[in-house]
Amino acid sequence: MPESDAEREAEWVRGIQRGDNAAFEALFLAYYERLVRFAYGFVKMRSAAEEIVQDLFLTVWTRREQWAVHGAVQTYLYAATRNHALNWLRHGGTEQRWVASVVDGDDVRAVLPRSAPANERVELAELDEAIRQAIDRLPPRSRETFILSRQHYLSYEEIAQVMDVSVKTVQEQIWRALRTLRVSLASWLE
């Protein structure tokens, strides 16, 4: 991350701690989409992913005076999103969670797929779709590491902090992911 970004974000953090609404909005808008996508990778349900990230930001705001960020806020937000998402899964995955919310046997069975989104979606090339699906099939931790590196542009050191592992583990997950992807995409790439 360029130095100026880091400085600006540190300024937002100080602003939020002072109760500055605009700083809170700026941080929210800068990170919301990325974090929802990251959370979605765990929970596979958009409404849940959005809820997780919204809860996270609400907690930040309501506890802003005691809010302590050691190091970069980016690492903090990714790590917190990750914890919330894993916690959500522990309380029973998607289906169980909905059933668990049922009081008297009512059951919100399935959210039918949302129809085409409002904005035009660029058609994914076939290779891209194959890559996306191959990434999806990676072992969970390998997948998470690879996605944080390639789609969220976190450094190995940042990923290590978010996932609470060593840099060496990150390195290993990345090459293992690459090796698996190479095999599953063999027919596409010659």
Binding site: F28, L29, Y32, V36, Y40, I131, R150, Q151, L189
Partner: peptide, 30 residues
Amino acid sequence: ALQQIWERAAEVQEPIDVDARAAWLVVRAR
């Protein structure tokens, strides 16, 4: 081949639409 995977992987995201502005309104309402 790996270079291709590496580069394309940055372009393929989770297939969801996220509207941060709309979500901000929800958070503010909450």
